[in-house]
């Protein structure tokens, strides 16, 4: 598939079939991604999933091995300078001269833009007023992150890339960053952010793209991702040791039943009244009473862990 030269209309970022290899390993393996204008899209994935590489290709810092990328209608590899005048970037871990004062660094980045925000106001509102004269290497991790965020938005960009914007922040600072991202969306700025915090993706994003081993494993709004048919669960307590295979057989095809802890049972699938009735009836045939019955929707975290596995990543 070939994209129009200036990308689909109304789209801030369009990525099709993106591939990036580092030597023998493939970091990004056929990723498709869309960021509509004035929306927030979260790229969610474990460490090493290919999130940062995808962002770096979109901002023109790396070149793709295959695939098509259009950012604000431009090819980042072909017109990096024209593109960078219109976007704001927060690289992972920020970045500044070790000996520079926070306000000096923001002033330098502001000088790169034609109509920057007021540096002093931005410093104050981001809670950096007390450390405006502190050198970068003496700022805390959270302060460095907020400075990096200020650098990403000071130039009044149309599109902002935020690579793990709240890593290392305390809950108050994270809340502030969320407010800022919400304000960017309100004012018509498109945002592509990477995170491995489900809570963050769920709170901020219009769309979530879950990526693992360089591939998109799921995408949709947070609500869509958590309300698909098999994302509901019925949990209950009953006598330990009942045969869950028999329980699953008593339900329509496609339902799963398990006893993760003694006397605690889980049925996964769309939980509607007939299914609830079937479960309690089956318990009755076993001479058991289903107690403490609860129907829950799985969280985005459950969806994420099911899709990307539960083993630790390096």
């Amino acid at each position: 598939m070939s994209l129009p030269a200036d990308g689909p209309p109304g789209s801030a970022v369009t990525v099709r079939g993106l591939v990036k290899r580092y030597g023998p390993s493939t970091a990004v393996d056929g990723v498709d991604l869309d960021v509509p204008a004035a929306s927030v899209v979260a790229l969610l994935g474990p460490n090493g999933a290919g999130k940062t590489t995808t962002v770096e290709i979109c901002t023109g810092l790396r070149r793709a091995d295959a695939g098509e990328v259009r950012v604000l209608g431009l090819d980042p590899a072909g017109a990096p300078d024209a593109l960078r005048a219109r976007i704001g970037v927060m690289p992972q871990g920020g970045g500044a001269y070790p000996g520079v004062r926070a306000a000096e660094m923001l002033r330098l980045v502001a000088a790169c833009s034609a109509h920057p925000l007021d540096v002093d106001e931005l410093i104050e509102v981001l809670g950096l007023g007390s450390c405006a004269r502190t050198t970068y290497k003496r700022l805390s991790g959270g302060q460095q992150q907020r400075l990096a965020l200020a650098c990403a938005v000071v130039g009044r960009p149309e599109l902002v890339f935020l690579d793990e914007p709240t890593a290392g922040m305390d809950p108050q600072a994270r809340r502030l960053v969320w407010e800022l991202i919400e304000s960017l969306r309100r004012d018509g700025v498109a945002v592509l952010l990477t995170t491995h915090l489900m809570e963050e993706a769920e709170a901020l994003a219009d769309d979530v793209v879950i990526i693992d081993h360089g591939r998109v494993v799921a995408h949709g709004s947070p609500a869509e991702l958590t309300t698909t048919a098999d994302s509901q669960e019925l949990r209950f307590r009953a006598r330990a040791g009942m045969d869950v295979t028999e329980l699953a057989a008593a339900l329509p095809a496609g339902y799963a039943a398990a006893e993760p802890a003694a006397g605690r049972y889980v049925v996964q699938g769309r939980i509607d009244p007939p299914v609830l009735a079937a479960v309690t009836t089956w318990c009755a045939t076993q001479g058991a009473l289903a107690d403490d019955v609860r129907i829950t929707r799985r969280s985005l975290e459950d969806v994420f862990l099911d899709l990307t596995g539960r083993e630790l990543r390096p």
């Binding site: 300078d81 005048a85 219109r86 976007i87 502001a110 000088a111 790169c112 833009s113 034609a114 109509h115 920057p116 925000l117 509102v125 938005v153 130039g155 009044r156 960009p157 149309e158 809340r175 502030l176 969320w178 407010e179 800022l180 919400e182 304000s183 960017l184 309100r186 004012d187 018509g188 700025v189 809570e199 769920e202 709170a203 901020l204 947070p222 609500a223 958590t226 929707r297 969280s299």
Partner: peptide, 28 residues
């Protein structure tokens, strides 16, 4: 569960309205 969206209270509407453009090279 739908997480409540944070309110953008600290930043006045229009604060971030895009106005992009490259700065002056000499000034940079």
């Amino acid at each position: 569960m739908t997480a409540s969206r944070p309110s953008p209270g600290r930043f006045a509407p229009g604060t971030f309205t895009p106005r992009p453009g490259r700065g002056d090279l000499g000034r940079m």
